[in-house]
Design a protein around this nucleic acid. Structure first.
Lengths: 233, 233
DNA sequence: GTGACACAAACATCTGACTTTTTATTCCGG
DNA sequence: CCGGAATAAAAAGTCAGATGTTTGTGTCAC
């Protein structure tokens, strides 16, 4: 699914990042680069690069004479897809999924409305194809196949909105959908009503009906929220 | 305004980052670490750390035998506050401001609605204080003072929503508001109607009227969009 | 108690050697 | 002429060690 860790420093990150986001090193904890380098059996240079990346994600702060301190959760760059992935794999996955789904419920309807105005024929076709794919895989425990089409569908909507910030939420939504499938926060088969809604959104976008696209997408995201309340209370 | 560059690698970043986001090195360009290190007069270690950070922002990709390639704009982590700041300082500030403002128009109304349900007395007080501060500085070319209260206001709303993802957009909104003030994409005095709307949002939140808070905030963001159309066509 | 000062801890930087991966080129057999 | 295998080279990746720099802390004189 994710690239299998190119480079030593990336492997260190894939161990350290999840540990920090999971709370193994609670905010305020102090790490020493040298010790970390030893425990991971890498050179200081490599460890320093890893720390720099964590620092750019605002997960830690490196200060002379003090060490590398873990920053308060409220300061983390939680829009970094990497951070999202780490957190979805960790403990408070439920809380994380909920706040992300609320974000989706704010953004995706507006994006769908814009998509209805801006989508080109190409994108409309893609959208229809995705929706059909979802229908085809909506029964018989084909969650992986369904996921692929679902992710693609929402990616196309966000991209077709013509707004760069929306488009870049494609990764975030992908993480959410993947996360809830992989971690069994999902029924065995997707909600048939949700599938229908996707098909109708594709229609609305094709017809350029912004208001309907927005409203239908709102129903999808509201449904996702409810589903979350049922499955991850 | 921003921290004045702690460490050598940060200083390199503050030069390279804006250069890349401004398009001085268009996507596909290949940089060599050694050359960069020489031209910035730093050691390779420092340059490597800087590159690693750029890589974590998905601005570049580093591959053996090839070099450091600038990635397509569509892949950048545009939610990284650092990246936002760099881009707002660069060329297509107008386009950037617009897409960020559209994002605000999707998120902030929903956040305000949630804030009306979740805000504690403390936050309500803060909100009122911010609104009053905005009123006080809304006349007589006090744009800097106004900005402070405006930023604080929206931060409180986003934080009071109780949703972590919304809360973390506080930095993004701050960048937008600061950006449009600093770069003269703003009238000499703020729109009086906008000021009034902020006061009324504070009221609505205090009274727990979610629907009204949402609707009023929508008016604020729609106004911001219109203002943008007028001032940065 | 307080302020100046010295010490030490941890990160920060530099350097040079060595390794590894990947790409391009060359060379050979068909 | 072509295709594939051997080869060379380029650039990032890794490491180890020396040295600089900031800063928290404790001490000592007053």
């Amino acid at each position: 699914m994710t690239t299998p860790a190119r480079g030593l420093h990336a492997r260190v990150l894939q161990a350290l990042g999840p540990a920090i986001t999971a709370g193994d090193y609670p905010p305020g904890s102090v790490l020493r680069t040298d010790e970390l380098a030893q425990s991971f059996e890498v050179s200081r240079s490599v460890m320093r690069e890893a720390v720099r990346v964590l620092e750019s994600m605002h997960l830690v702060e490196s200060r002379r004479r003090v060490g590398v301190t873990v920053r308060p959760t409220a300061e983390w760059n939680v829009y970094d897809p990497q951070v999202i992935r780490w957190r979805l794999a960790g403990r408070d996955r439920a809380r994380q999924l909920r706040s992300l789904t609320v974000l989706r419920s704010a953004v995706e309807p507006v994006a769908a409305g814009l998509a209805a105005r801006n989508a080109g024929p190409e994108q409309c076709a893609e959208l229809t194809e995705c929706a059909l794919g979802m229908v085809a895989t909506s029964r018989g425990h084909q969650l992986e196949g369904y996921l692929v089409h679902d992710v693609a569908f929402h990616r196309v909507i966000l991209a077709a909105s013509g707004n760069e910030m929306f488009a870049r939420l494609g990764d975030v939504v992908a993480e959410v959908l993947t996360g809830r499938t992989q971690h069994q926060v999902m029924f065995e088969d997707p909600d048939p009503e949700a599938v229908t809604l996707h098909v109708r959104v594709a229609e609305a976008v094709r017809e350029g009906d912004a208001r309907r696209a927005e409203e239908l997408t709102r129903e999808i995201t509201v449904g996702a929220l409810h589903e979350l309340d049922v499955l991850a209370p």
